[in-house]
Amino acid sequence: MSNFNLEIIILVVGFLMIIAGVYCLIRTYHLLKILIGIEVAMKAVTMFIILAGHINGKINLAQTFVITMIVTEVVVAVVAAGLAINLYRKYGNMDVRNLRKLKG
């Protein structure tokens, strides 16, 4: 019974974290805050994978997945931060509403 509760709790918390991340992505106009939103949602996914490993008894496999995932995630964050810095140098602020050159 306690296992079952853990499953439900982690699923609900992870779902809420993804909602929070995507909400942050939609509502904010700041480049770095968008990046933070993406990272929050990614952390929820990490939790799902660990939960999956816990449930099907292959926690070692799940751990290797998570470690690999953290690496790729960091690379994405670095590239995104680089783009944000370059956009800051072009426009002088980090507002997403500057990005209106491409339309249609």
Binding site: I18, I38, A41, F48
Partner: peptide
């Protein structure tokens, strides 16, 4: 995020 969540559920 979509792909990884889906992957976790399939796993």
């Amino acid at each position: 995020i979509f792909v990884l969540t889906g992957l976790a559920f399939v796993f």
